[in-house]
Structure formats: structure tokens, C-alpha cells
């Protein structure tokens, strides 16, 4: 039976409410872990610890872009590339130093990562809910969530290798990690589609994990629970 999405919302809300701590931990912790993993990857890949960092005045920069860019579309695109923090390795063997690699915190990308983390955390608390009710867990949900997270994660990479003159893009991160240059460049234009596919998979994972039928069977409810049922039943 196909259950409308609106009937799943109370189930999702209750699962989040019941596992509030876990949900917040994943939402906040996932982006932090994501950046920590990127930094660790850079250190392992190049064998150097970061030796410089620069904090950018993001609010002022955004204000400047808003004032000086006539087109709203352009404004959004430019702001989405604005950096908040740059942390990297400066090679001082040449000239007064040349930045070899950097990890950048880009608020717009952080927003995407937070959206990813919200969906991932939701799938997780729904599955905890299932487990507590002692039901068999749907296998499709974690697979879709994992695959979706990987796709969105790849396109949210903000490791920049200062390979001269090439505009920094997410595929530079893939190239740094060993993907061939031609393949990286080939993938670049389809980045937004990869992100969209990732979110679609995550949405499917949330949908699958919030099936009211399974929830009801597991927790001894009717197959069409009302929000009241769910609220009163708890976990």
C-alpha cells in the first residue's frame, strides 16, 4: 500500500523527538566529521600538517556581493562560493611561499552538508525506533542513505589544491585523492545532478524508514496510525 508522505511526517517527528539527542549529535557531528576527514585525508595524502589559516569576513563579503551584483541569480551563485575559513599548507621553499593545498569552509556548502546530515540523522532515528520495536529493518533504507550521502558528500568536498590557474572546484578534491585528471574534468559538469541524485536517494531512505505500516505492526498499532496514536504510544 502506498502511504502519502504527509502521513509519514508525524512518524518522523515523533522519532526525532524520541531520539532528540542522537538526532542533534548526528546533525552537528556529521559536518564536523566530514571536514575532519577531509583534513586528515589532505595530511595523509601530502604528508604535511597545515601551517596557515585565514578567517574571512564572510558577512561583509556577502554584503558587498549583494550590493555590487545586479542579478539575483549571479548573486546566489557567487555567494555560494564564498569562503569562511581556509586552513592549509604553505610551502615556503619557493618565493615567499606558495599555498599547496587547503581545506575551505564554505558556508553554502555547509548548508548542503547540514541538509544531508538532517536526512541522515532522520533515517538513523527512524531505524533506532524500528529496532526498539523489535522489527526486521528494511534493507533498502540504509543502502539508499549510504549511497545518497556518498554522492552528496563527494560534491560537497571543499579541499582545494592550488594547482595554478585552475578554478577550484569539488573535482579537484577527487583528483587530489587519485582520480585521473580527465575523469575528474569529465565529472565536473554533472556535479549538480550528482548532488540531486544523492538527495533523492536520501529522501527515498527517509521514506522507506518511515513506513507507517511497518511501524504499526512492530509496535502493535493499527496499520493506519493517527498522529495521536503515535504521540500517545511513544516508543
Amino acid at each position: 500500500m502506498i502511504v502519502p508522505a504527509r502521513r509519514r511526517i508525524p512518524i518522523i517527528v515523533e522519532a526525532i523527538g524520541a531520539q532528540r539527542g542522537l538526532w542533534f549529535a548526528v546533525v552537528v557531528g556529521f559536518p564536523l566529521m566530514f571536514y575532519a576527514a577531509q583534513l586528515a585525508g589532505l595530511v595523509l595524502r601530502f604528508g604535511d600538517l597545515p601551517n596557515y589559516w585565514t578567517l574571512y569576513d564572510w558577512p561583509s563579503n556577502v554584503r558587498r556581493i549583494l550590493v555590487s551584483t545586479p542579478s539575483i541569480l549571479d548573486t546566489v551563485a557567487i555567494i555560494s562560493e564564498e569562503w569562511l575559513l581556509e586552513i592549509g599548507y604553505m610551502n615556503r621553499d619557493f618565493g615567499h611561499g606558495i599555498s599547496e593545498w587547503a581545506l575551505n569552509i564554505v558556508p553554502a556548502r555547509m548548508f548542503v552538508l547540514m541538509a544531508l546530515a538532517v536526512m541522515l540523522a532522520t533515517v538513523l532515528v527512524l531505524r533506532v525506533q524500528c529496532r526498539r520495536c523489535g522489527l526486521a529493518l528494511p534493507a533498502s533504507s540504509p543502502v539508499a542513505a549510504g549511497l545518497g550521502s556518498a554522492l552528496v558528500g563527494f560534491t560537497s568536498i571543499t579541499m582545494y589544491w592550488v594547482v595554478c590557474c585552475a578554478s577550484p572546484t569539488w573535482v579537484v578534491g577527487l583528483s587530489m585523492m587519485g582520480l585521473s585528471v580527465p575523469l575528474s574534468l569529465w565529472i565536473e559538469p554533472i556535479g549538480p545532478w550528482i548532488t540531486a541524485a544523492g538527495f533523492a536517494l536520501l529522501a527515498a531512505a527517509v521514506y522507506a524508514a518511515s513506513s507507517p505500516g511497518k511501524e504499526a505492526t512492530r509496535c502493535g498499532r493499527s496499520s493506519n496510525p493517527t498522529p495521536f496514536d503515535l504521540r500517545s504510544h511513544g516508543t
Binding site: F46, N91, F94, V163
Partner: peptide, 10 residues
């Protein structure tokens, strides 16, 4: 073909 910054290449 590898993508390397000038300093890394040098």
C-alpha cells in the same frame, strides 16, 4: 597525466 601544483611538481 597527474595534476600537480608547481611547488609539488618541483
Amino acid at each position: 597525466l597527474k595534476n600537480q601544483s608547481p611547488a609539488v611538481g618541483a
